[in-house]
Amino acid sequence: MPTSSVLVVEDSEIDQVIAKYMFNKFDENLEVLQAFDGVEALDILKGTQPQPIFIFLDINMPRMNGHDFLKAYESSDLNSTSIVMLTSSCQPEEKDKCLAYNSVKRYLTKPLEIADLEGLFKTS
């Protein structure tokens, strides 16, 4: 049986550690892939089969930020995984902007809670 995975695109090491910890707690069989910016995320996605069930995406990142990643991702042939924004920005304009992307299904603000994951996996 292929392992299911999630990809966390997040440049803060602390946030990566915590996200991984939360996913492990939620489901220890879930593989957590880590990318520290959009460029790394695209690379990982190209080399991963099957594709992760969710991509958790931060907005503010060096090299390639969340918006640029979304544009690149949606215009690539990878475009199949639901994306969940995971960011500290709680501005409504930012939220609207993100939810306007077809691939973006949810907009979560940090910190990530177990309840968020439960809701997410239940409805998916």
Binding site: V17, I18, T109, P111
Partner: peptide, 21 residues
């Protein structure tokens, strides 16, 4: 007020999670 509550809370929440770890 939003930012302070959010920004004050987020390192605290991180620390609590990190303590679990």
């Amino acid at each position: 007020s939003y930012r302070t509550s959010h920004d004050l809370r987020s390192p605290l929440v991180s620390s609590i999670r990190l303590l679990d770890i």
